[in-house]
Design a binder for these strands. Sequence first.
DNA 1: CTCCTGTGATACCCGCCGGGTATGGGCCAG
DNA 2: CTGGCCCATACCCGGCGGGTATCACAGGAG
Lengths: 291, 291
Amino acid sequence: MVDLETRELRYFVAVAEELHFGRAAERLGIAQPPLSRAIRLLERRLGVQLLDRDRRGVALTEAGRVLLREAATALDAVAAAARRTRRAADPQRPLVLVTKAGASHELLRRLLDAQAAEPGAVPVEVLLCEIGEQARLLRDGQADVALMHRPYDDLAGFDTEDLHVEGQVAILPAGHPLASRDRLTLADVSDVPDLPIARWPRLDGSYPEGPGPEVRTQSTLAQLVALGRTLLVIPASSRAWQWPEHVAVPVVDAPRVTTVLAWPSGSHSLAVASLVRSAAALRDTAPPADV
Amino acid sequence: MVDLETRELRYFVAVAEELHFGRAAERLGIAQPPLSRAIRLLERRLGVQLLDRDRRGVALTEAGRVLLREAATALDAVAAAARRTRRAADPQRPLVLVTKAGASHELLRRLLDAQAAEPGAVPVEVLLCEIGEQARLLRDGQADVALMHRPYDDLAGFDTEDLHVEGQVAILPAGHPLASRDRLTLADVSDVPDLPIARWPRLDGSYPEGPGPEVRTQSTLAQLVALGRTLLVIPASSRAWQWPEHVAVPVVDAPRVTTVLAWPSGSHSLAVASLVRSAAALRDTAPPADV
DNA sequence: CTCCTGTGATACCCGCCGGGTATGGGCCAG
DNA sequence: CTGGCCCATACCCGGCGGGTATCACAGGAG
């Protein structure tokens, strides 16, 4: 049995991501030789080669790729332990709810209002993040609960409560021929030559091949749409995209999107339970108009 | 931002579980004073009181309870990182499949046969565990894949493939009046005065109140049934209970149990994928007789 | 061919921190 | 009051994590 220390995992992650001992050491705030030694020791303790030191630079072995992935989640778990413990000790800790900026705006407003009206309401702090970040923020304890969207977000490891189902719309630059239609299909929007779909970075930061522009944030994407450089298909209730230059047209055969409230499974927080109750009541009493 | 080391977490878990510095230190193989100091340092770094040192002994604070739970999952994640990394480096690593001893025996046999018949079959090692342990073994990397049972096992954090649905039977000592019936209901078996339901330990090791005998393993339970001291309700295909002194009677209104193949979500292992394919094919070509 | 540059590895030193022993001090039980 | 239990404090030591200086080696420029 080998007991890894989080320091070793942090060091390895830095080297594995930088693929360069010098830069990794700088990022960690230590010198390069101790880092080399630490990684070598880690390899010997595990009995596994993690890196191929080539003449020029460093490459991950298969085992190294596994450890990079596993170490990231393990470090998240450790960070979550610290954060949640501190939060638990804060008597007036607000509940942190994270959601994608601009998504499900109306629903969120109604949820916050409903929760605030509860007797003994726990204050709710709203944290906005970029697409796909909610899962990490929940996992590492920076947030207690999230609004997420099936089937797009990865809900593995979370308990969820469905809140709302809706269709999707294509966001187009006003003035584009497609913008005058009153309904579209996925076929209509999939291969528009002058509006290629934007490309998001993969987990490793690289971009898939394709003609569309590379984007990393919603705001850049919104501006690209306004400039007539790309189109996108999103849930009807998303509001981050309502620029004057934008037109929304329903896409009738796009998959329907379910907005869910998600929280780490096994969470014993009374505050989370209270919010979930509010959400369920909200959905049952006043279902928002579907699109 | 506080970076906890796994050593600190292990120390805290030991103290939190033992609620006694001396015993915790002994369990950790260190002396008591350094342990006291380490815990005190941990509290100061977190800025949170984790333990109430009472006149006599130690009690967990609310924050301490949170950290105990979080630390356990974080340590599991770290251990999983080490184990999975080593496994990844082993060229002829077998795939480890864990299941409750005695459960879904036929299904498992057919699954192993089907997988062995695959071209390029990965060897599968079977690991048997007690009830409720599969999730931990999957989480901490001791197993790659598990047979689990909805709705009884906690499937949070795992991807699953449904394999089989079946009813449940009551296991009774032969000769008991109920044993001669050809069907039972939950009402029939819920309050039999001379056959009280056995009590399993909770996570903290304590037992719920009740008249039934306390059990910790399946084998003790099987013997208690044979002795006519308790009854139990289990999926029809479970085979650990087929002693000569046992009689199985269908319980018509018990919830139906789904046997699922489960693996850590996000697992990129080709071997797991291959086994899942085998399992799906198995189910589609030759569904086992339902009960 | 030579020299320079950039890379990770090695050698060696030092200070800190984790761990040990000895002991103190508060709080029951009797 | 007193002894015992249990955690905290005081103090020492050795190992390890981190630093600097340097080496070894591979390319590339000239």
